[in-house]
Design a protein around this nucleic acid. Sequence first.
RNA 1: UUAGUUAGCCAGAUGGUCGCAUGCCUUUGUGGUGAAGAGCAUGAGGAAAGUCCGAGCUCCACAGAACAGGGUGCCGGUUAACUGCCGGCGGAGGCGACUUUAGGGAAAGUGCAACAGAAAUAAACCGCCAGAAAUGGUAAGGAUGGAAAGGGGAGGUAAGAGCUCACCGCACGCUUGGCAACAAGAGUGGCACAUGUAAACCCCACCCGGAGCAAGGUUAAAAGAAACGCAAAGAUUGUUCGUCUGUUUCUUAAUAACACCGCUUGAAUGAUUUGGCGACAAAUUGUCUAGAUAGAUGACCAUCAAAAACAGAACUCGGCUUAUAGACUAACUAAUAAG
RNA 2: GCCCUCAUGGUCAAGCGGUUAAGACGUCGCCCUCUCACGGCGGAAUCUGGGGUUCGAUUCCCCAUGAGGGUA
Length: 114
Amino acid sequence: MLPKKNRLKKNKQFNYIYKHGQTKHDSKLSMCYIKTKYKPFKIGFTVSKKIGNSVTRSRVKRLLREVVRNELKNIDENYNYILIAREGIEKENIISIREKLIILLNKAGLYKKD
RNA sequence: UUAGUUAGCCAGAUGGUCGCAUGCCUUUGUGGUGAAGAGCAUGAGGAAAGUCCGAGCUCCACAGAACAGGGUGCCGGUUAACUGCCGGCGGAGGCGACUUUAGGGAAAGUGCAACAGAAAUAAACCGCCAGAAAUGGUAAGGAUGGAAAGGGGAGGUAAGAGCUCACCGCACGCUUGGCAACAAGAGUGGCACAUGUAAACCCCACCCGGAGCAAGGUUAAAAGAAACGCAAAGAUUGUUCGUCUGUUUCUUAAUAACACCGCUUGAAUGAUUUGGCGACAAAUUGUCUAGAUAGAUGACCAUCAAAAACAGAACUCGGCUUAUAGACUAACUAAUAAG
RNA sequence: GCCCUCAUGGUCAAGCGGUUAAGACGUCGCCCUCUCACGGCGGAAUCUGGGGUUCGAUUCCCCAUGAGGGUA
């Protein structure tokens, strides 16, 4: 799990990022991000009902959080992020999800350690 | 031993590293139990699911009265309550063990009964008998249908008919057994306002007010602005009685919610004993067993041959229904082998 | 979380307990035409699934499944 200070919590914040942020896409994962001035940057997750029932949805969320937790030091701190799971991600394991996240961050130019 | 049926029970385990939530304790920080760290303890289910029933709890005035509307419907028991469960009675199915069953009222009234058939709640097409015929008497036999004025048999007759008789069925009251549903027995009636349908309207008996924890409540004081307002509004199907008086929104500071309570000790549950066929009840003793709020159980490694089913708490219980890999236990059935 | 609605050929759909399950568009086959179009004739439905009530169920009742909506 993520530490509490790095979690994106409010519905308003999600809507703000969706409206004003930029998006990058991959086949199994999307990322929405926007610049922020507050210091502990925040990451939120969206897993829709298309993915599966509540067990598989929460498993996908846990896997995403675990990946993000291990990569926290390598992510640019000046942005807030939302990670959106797309259909098919429930079949992937943690290693391929990590690769996809790094690909997306490199696309946006926000991955520190190339 | 193998295969199957029924019932019950478990629902991966152990160790290590990193990480999350809650509680306790402690350190640092702050105007501050807002933050951060260390340690210890605890951390999803048998269905948590569907939301199909029943309750607790909260608000709606005190939750009332009448109508409407809805539900249930053999008897007894059980329970906080139930449309649940247990035991019985009747019906249906089965050779049987057993399984299954929303099972009051059709002489209170209304409606419906296609097609077929002469005729569908109403008598007469063919037929039988009498008669020269007109016509009259019949309902045994025929065909249709789910259903055709109790059944098939004997007597009887012009031919027939509960017209008469025995048996069975039906109705009525009586006796016996049973708490009761009901069963058994002997008797009386000659069989009706005559079929079916109430999961058609309906009648009878009993029950039900509405909304739902995002219910609802607590938190110090203040400033400014806007909207609706004196008869409307305020969570309650329609009407009547009855209650209250400003209400709502935005901005300012961490601030009317990103806080706190409700929130988890409860009709709780394990074991033993007693009562009961059983559902269940009583007594003794032990246990404390999630409480999140973008929402906590994860990742990796090792071992167990393999970790793979259905599936994730959101106020809480009692049931019902549906999904479900595999392991174990008991009873029974079939086959094979041995004694 | 709570509360509702719907399901009928490929699509949109009507349907008084008794129908050959009405139509429209599409599609397939045949006819018409020198050919295509138009036109004509015909075919294709386990009425979402499983039980029950009834002589008889798309319709009435119960359970399930799958879609859609409302509330905040």
